[in-house]
């Protein structure tokens, strides 16, 4: 059942790229879907965004954060399970002028997949990818440039591409009266909240990925509950993308912090074993 890793490479000092054989997932993947990974037999179930799905393989961007990701980076050449596609795909149709924005690892993966699907549907797609400095910018081959119509690489210190976060540049665009029909975004949750605050004033539909802790990722446990317009929704089956204007952000920002202590313990132990 194991899934062979066919390519692994550094994206920057923190993030890496993984390509793995997963024919069933690759065949059925649609933009907005995610995958559940179990790296080792004793592993946890980790939801992960997909950058692209081609030739029976899927590609992902992963941040070296804790035990699972470090061990994967350092010691593994296969996954125990690759499960999916999970989640609800976005409604891929012609909206007009579409913005896709991201500022963190999984968001960047989604950026590519969303741009590709939305462009194929006949939209004019404007992609924003924000990195802190030139040093963190990913290799050109994985950026969304070739799958969109207008590409904005931005760095927060201006050391490469345009200067500033996508939020700043987007705000200028909106102030200048540029027409945007819909925005899709992923990455840092606090920034997605801010994005929602910004676009609400302009009345632009804004669909964002609400990354939450998941266990079964099939609607059974309720761990990933997100409150949208006062209603409880599950990120795993109703999402992971929701209307940024309707999300209870306080709860969504808090829930991913639940296992910070345990994550440290698992990582330290793995490091001692020489696998992380």
């Amino acid at each position: 059942m194991a899934h062979k890793i066919t390519r692994k490479m550094d994206l920057n000092s923190e993030d890496f790229y993984v390509e793995v054989e997963a024919p069933l997932v690759a065949e059925r993947f649609r933009a907005g879907n995610f995958v559940v990974l179990i790296t080792v037999p004793h592993g946890e179930r980790i939801p992960m965004s997909i950058m692209k799905a081609e030739d029976g393989k899927i590609s992902m961007f992963i941040k070296k954060l804790g035990k699972t990701s470090w061990e994967l980076y350092k010691s593994l050449d296969q996954f125990e399970h690759v499960i999916g596609p999970m989640g609800k795909p976005i409604d891929v149709k012609k909206y007009g002028r579409v913005v896709v924005a991201s500022d963190l690892v999984c968001g960047h993966a989604e950026n590519y997949a969303l741009c590709k699907a939305l462009k194929e549907a006949g939209n004019y797609v404007i992609s924003f990818q924000t990195f802190p400095t030139a040093e963190e910018v990913y290799p050109e081959e994985v950026l969304a440039r070739p799958v969109c119509d207008e590409y904005h690489l931005t760095t927060e210190d201006g050391s490469k591409g345009e200067e500033g976060h996508y939020l700043d540049i987007l705000e200028e665009m909106l102030e200048s009266g540029e027409k945007i029909d819909i925005i899709f975004a992923g990455g840092s949750l606090p920034n997605l909240k801010e994005l929602g605050d910004l676009t609400k004033d302009y009345n632009i539909p804004t669909i964002v990925t609400v990354r939450q802790i998941m266990v079964d990722a099939s609607g059974m446990c309720g761990a990933c509950r997100v409150f949208v317009d006062g209603e409880m929704q599950l990120a795993c089956i109703d999402g992971p993308m929701f209307d940024a204007h309707k999300i209870d952000w306080d709860a969504a920002l808090r829930r991913p912090m639940m296992y910070v202590e345990q994550e440290k313990i698992a990582y330290e132990r793995c490091k001692k074993l020489g696998r992380c």
């Binding site: 080792v40 592993g43 035990k67 699972t68 345990q262 698992a266």
Partner: peptide, 19 residues
């Protein structure tokens, strides 16, 4: 599910945490 399916009672030998 954490405790039974994912064996969180064996954390950190098993990866899934429980609080």
């Amino acid at each position: 599910i954490r405790a039974n399916l994912m064996k969180a009672y064996l954390f950190p030998e098993w990866d899934t945490p429980i609080s």
